[in-house]
Nucleic acid binder design. Structure first.
Lengths: 149, 149
DNA sequence: ATTGAATATTAATTCAAG
DNA sequence: CTTGAATTAATATTCAAT
């Protein structure tokens, strides 16, 4: 099993079960016949940006990173509904056209949302260029943004 | 300085500065003339449910607990807009009246949101009773819920 | 109930090595 | 580039003491 697969397995596991510590993952993976050490899990957790959350019940639990928060999402939604004109992708780029004067704000929100898939954004007056990490990511971002409209 | 004050100071600090480890808090508090040990900070972090977030830039950072996520918030919003009839508080209780058949779903969402202020909920067919941890908390919950409508 | 000192446990990193 | 073994560092807990 390669790192990529292990990562997605870990993502699943932390959602399904209560993982209190890294050794729990080591053990569960071992039971599945995947041998890794705590060192690797520590690196995986860092790369996946999993967070360790103190739970109400007194223990700890690893979890997926928090989604975009409600306020940010609402802002994005409002802005897109108000000012969106068009969206298109080309290779690893997503180009969003907005009503004049709105692109900068849009770019700022997208930046702050800190999407894993995004390398960076450049905003003008009525255009935001999102530079993604690849073509696939650009298509994904396009879908995500369309979902807000 | 008592625990309550220290807690709110810590909340502020993690928002203002990048706290990479518990010792950072020990040091910062010390500079402010507040002497605490790492043991206490560890307990504080557990009680405040602060999370340790691996940052994009490679380090770690303590942060406030994640807000309710977008999907949950949207569900709550939709349900309240559809089915909300009234809300009232009495002591530590918040009573929400909904269109028949909707209270259970509403209770479930409020439960899943895991509000710090909430002790538990009881849902019937058209009524949700939220039992809060106190009177103040009930008023706060009322305000939060009204904000969604 | 809250805390610190000491300790135990857990997590991150270093340092080869594949 | 990815990993494990060993190590260091960080964090949680225990055990008084207040």
């Amino acid at each position: 099993m390669n790192k990529r697969d292990r990562h997605s397995l870990i993502r699943e596991l932390v959602q399904e079960q209560i993982i209190e510590k890294q050794e729990d993952l080591v053990r569960i993976l071992m039971e599945k016949g995947i041998e890794v050490t705590q060192a690797t899990i520590s690196r995986d957790i860092k790369e996946l940006q999993l967070i360790k959350v103190p739970s109400k019940s007194g223990g700890y639990r690893y979890n997926l990173p928090p989604e975009m928060n409600y306020d940010t999402a609402r802002k994005l939604e409002r802005l897109l509904r108000d000012a969106f004109i068009s969206i298109d992708t080309q290779k690893e780029f997503v180009l969003i056209k907005t009503q004049p004067g709105n692109a900068f704000a849009l770019g700022a929100i997208i930046d702050s949302a800190d999407y894993e898939e995004v390398f960076g954004t450049i905003s003008g007056d009525d255009t935001v260029l999102i530079i993604c990490k690849g073509e696939e990511e650009a298509l994904y971002m396009q879908r995500r943004i369309i979902a807000f409209i």
